[in-house]
C-alpha cells in the first residue's frame, strides 16, 4: 500500500523525536565530560581531558571502579552457575512445583528495591556483612539470579530434548551429552544471562547504598556520593567510559550471536 508522502514525513519525524528523547539524556554526558570548568552545566564551556585524568589518578575513583568490577565479575559467575542449575532443575520438575519455585526465584525482580535493601541491611547489621565484599556479592547475586534464570529457561524451552536421547543412543553418557550437545546449544542463553548478571551488579545502586561503608564503595555509590557532595564532572567522564564499554560489550555480543545464527541456518 502506498503511503502519502506527508504521512511518511510525519511518521519519520515522530520516530526521530522519540529516538532522540530516548538517547539524548545519555549522550548529554559525553560533551559534559570534556568540560573546561568544574561544573556540570550544559552546554559545557571549553575543552579538557582533566576529568578523565582525575578518574584514573584519584584513588577514590579508581578503587571504586575496581571494587565494582570485582563484585560484578564474581556475581556474574556465581549467578550464572546458580541460575543455570536452577533452570535445569525447574525444567525437569513437575510443572506445578516448578511454577511455584520459579515465582519464588523471580521475587527479587518484582519486590521494590528499597524494601529488599532494608531487609538486607537489617540482616547485614547483625552478621557484620556491611561494607564487605561477601556482603556485596551475596546481595547482588540475589538480584542478578532472576535474569540468568529467565535467559537460560528461554533457551532450554527451544532446546530439543530429543537430541539428548539421540546422543545417548550414540554412546554419550549424561555428562558427555551435556558437554557436547546441551551446553553448546543453550550457550547463547547462558552468555546473555552472564552479561545481564554482570550489568545488574555493576550498576546496582539502591541496595549498594544501604550496605556500603567508607571502606568499600562501588562505582555507582561513588558517583552518587560525588554528585551529591559537589558538581564534579568526573561523573560525566565515568559515564562516558561506561557508555563506550557497554556499547562495545553488547554490540560484540549481538555480532557474535548473529554470526552463530547464520552458521546454524
Amino acid at each position: 500500500m502506498a503511503m502519502h508522502p506527508c504521512t511518511r514525513v510525519m511518521l519519520g519525524l515522530s520516530c526521530l523525536l522519540v529516538a532522540l528523547w530516548l538517547v539524548a539524556p545519555t549522550l548529554v554526558v559525553v560533551p559534559m565530560s570534556f568540560n573546561g570548568n568544574k561544573s556540570l552545566a550544559f552546554p559545557p564551556v571549553g575543552f579538557s581531558w582533566q576529568w578523565y585524568e582525575n578518574f584514573v589518578s584519584n584513588p577514590e575513583w579508581s578503587t571504586s571502579f575496581f571494587n565494582s568490577l570485582k563484585v560484578a565479575l564474581i556475581v556474574a559467575v556465581l549467578a550464572t552457575v546458580l541460575g543455570t542449575l536452577a533452570a535445569f532443575g525447574l525444567d525437569r520438575m513437575k510443572a506445578r512445583t516448578a511454577g511455584l519455585l520459579r515465582m519464588l526465584l523471580l521475587t527479587p525482580m518484582v519486590v521494590p528495591g528499597v524494601v529488599l535493601a532494608i531487609g538486607i541491611y537489617a540482616v547485614y547489621l547483625d552478621t557484620q556483612l556491611v561494607g564487605t565484599l561477601t556482603g556485596f556479592v551475596l546481595a547482588h547475586t540475589i538480584l542478578a539470579l532472576p535474569f540468568v534464570l529467565i535467559a537460560v529457561q528461554a533457551s532450554l524451552e527451544v532446546f530439543d530434548k530429543r537430541l539428548e536421547t539421540a546422543a545417548a543412543s550414540l554412546g554419550a553418557g549424561r555428562l558427555a551429552t551435556f558437554r557436547t550437545v546441551t551446553l553448546p546449544l543453550i550457550a547463547p542463553g547462558i552468555l546473555s544471562g552472564l552479561l545481564f548478571a554482570f550489568a545488574t551488579s555493576f550498576d546496582e545502586i539502591i541496595v549498594s547504598l544501604f550496605i556500603t561503608n567508607p571502606y568499600l564503595k562501588t562505582l555507582p555509590v561513588q558517583i552518587f556520593s560525588s554528585i551529591t557532595r559537589d558538581a564534579d564532572p568526573t561523573v560525566a567522564a565515568v559515564g562516558t567510559i561506561l557508555l563506550c564499554a557497554t556499547t562495545i560489550l553488547i554490540g560484540g555480543g549481538l555480532f557474535l550471536m548473529g554470526r552463530e545464527r547464520r552458521g546454524n541456518l
Partner: peptide, 14 residues
C-alpha cells in the same frame, strides 16, 4: 551400542 534412527532426524544443529 545400538544404533537408532528417529522420525525427527535428531541431527545436532551445531
Amino acid at each position: 551400542n545400538i544404533g537408532v534412527v528417529f522420525q525427527h532426524y535428531a541431527l545436532f544443529p551445531h
